[in-house]
Design a protein around this nucleic acid. Sequence first.
DNA 1: TTCAAATACGACTATATTAGTCTTGTTTAA
DNA 2: TTAAACAAGACTAATATAGTCGTATTTGAA
Lengths: 132, 132
Amino acid sequence: MLRFSKKVEYALMALKHIAFTKEVVTAKEISEKYNIPFELLAKILQKLKKENILISTQGINGGYALNKIPSDISLYNIVTVLEGNVAVTECQNGETVCTCSLHDKCTIKDPIGMIQKDIEELFMRKTISDFV
Amino acid sequence: MLRFSKKVEYALMALKHIAFTKEVVTAKEISEKYNIPFELLAKILQKLKKENILISTQGINGGYALNKIPSDISLYNIVTVLEGNVAVTECQNGETVCTCSLHDKCTIKDPIGMIQKDIEELFMRKTISDFV
DNA sequence: TTCAAATACGACTATATTAGTCTTGTTTAA
DNA sequence: TTAAACAAGACTAATATAGTCGTATTTGAA
């Protein structure tokens, strides 16, 4: 249904919260405040950290903080980190080979590619600063 | 992964084909030409007919034809017919009650609503004439 | 030096959605 | 009357998403 995954929703909620509090925030705090399953949220934050969107500190006073200013964290960035890519169809994933069932019979690759590009650009323009 | 369903892909392929041949086309012909499962395609065409995008004639020389000019058939139209709506999240489906697990704790409804609107507008601008 | 609270990470299970199939009925021209 | 087409709903299979579990590591403080 052309929907954002819960992972992306939770990431946006978490990033907004972290951007707003402006200090180290624990996964537990976010999880409890917004009713987000802890383990799921933890893994999302870990992925965001791997992409240098967040920085983390371990140990008893640990937690997460932003590693970029909100306007430098794009929706495109978040979606690609959490879902691999923003491909509106199987063949728009950036790879050269298409394993789609239509094989070489697809007649809509080019126009779909343009829609793909439009959506990518839209997502690049949207940043966390649009959320806070 | 924010993807169009196969239903939408098949619909676009079929509509392009019908727009191109400019005469009555059978589901079987399209199904065979593009390797699209016949029963699935048939149901897609039936839905498009119900929405007056196609007209159909039954019986032995029957088939489908466009009921509108390609530039009057928008991607938005096709997606809503086949998937119900273009909701990027559960709460953006146009209904007033949100049954999302975040309940009233969601802090991103408004910015998500703007993205929703941008995508809807993009899909309204794209028509079958962009495919032929 | 031990402990509690935090991140890190991979494997696993459950659930929901999507894709595809099957069956039966209706229409219509030859 | 029959063959070839649309019509429609129930069903099953496959896939993707959401969520859980277990274990390891880090670190500040009692």
